[in-house]
């Protein structure tokens, strides 16, 4: 019962934080709130018995991705106005809202058939999960089932994931690895002069 209360409270915090992120216009505050959002999700993962995931989310979400976003903000900051005052004009507010409400209602209609949260006889618990829990210790001698599945049963999958991370690092290095070129981007006046 205590688990459920903590679960509900943390989920409500998360929903509130996400709405605050959506409504704010100061990018620095948004990034800091996103760090809090990640930390809350890490806590929620612990409540849902997933310590491995919580570890990763705490280190990645609250640590590294916040730092990366802050360095990005330092690179894209505006010299004149503080970020932006209001939502840009070309975006009408009601069309995205209708899209989101229709999609959300369809998804909520879909939850009617999902078994209750935490039920042990749900289809997701009865197939391959039982096999992993019963066989991982005799097969591999590793008590942590998550590590056994990650590195042994689904090793090929993990090799692909590691390659994706490597590829993303190479791509970022190619895009912004070097130092910034000295010449600033030309303004429209300078371009007109060049053409003349």
């Amino acid at each position: 019962m205590f688990d459920v209360v903590v679960d509900i409270v943390l989920l409500t915090f998360l929903a509130t934080t996400s709405v605050a992120i959506m409504r704010m216009t100061n990018l620095f505050a948004i990034v800091m709130l996103f760090g809090i959002f990640s930390l809350l999700s890490a806590g929620l993962f612990v409540v849902m018995d997933a310590p491995d995931v919580a570890f990763t989310e705490a280190a990645v979400g609250a640590g590294i991705s916040t730092v990366l976003m802050l360095t990005t903000l330092a690179l894209v900051k505006r010299s004149k106005a503080p970020y932006y005052d209001e939502a840009p004009k070309i975006h009408t507010a009601w069309l995205p809202l209708i899209v989101v409400i229709v999609t959300g209602s369809a998804l909520i209609y879909g939850t009617w058939d999902i078994p209750n949260f935490g039920s042990a006889d749900a289809p997701s618990q009865t197939h391959v999960a039982r096999f992993y829990l019963e066989n991982s210790l005799p097969d591999t001698g590793v008590p942590n089932t998550v590590t056994a599945v990650l590195a042994s049963y689904r090793g090929f999958d993990t090799l692909g994931e590691v390659t994706v991370i490597f590829t993303a690092a190479v791509a970022v290095m190619l895009l912004i690895g070097g130092k910034r070129p000295k010449s600033a981007p030309k303004t429209e006046d300078e371009e007109a002069q060049d053409e003349a």
Binding site: G118, Q125, L133, N144, V146
Partner: peptide
Amino acid sequence: MGTVEGGAAPII
């Protein structure tokens, strides 16, 4: 979806 009521973390 993976949570089981009264369950522990999957470390045998």
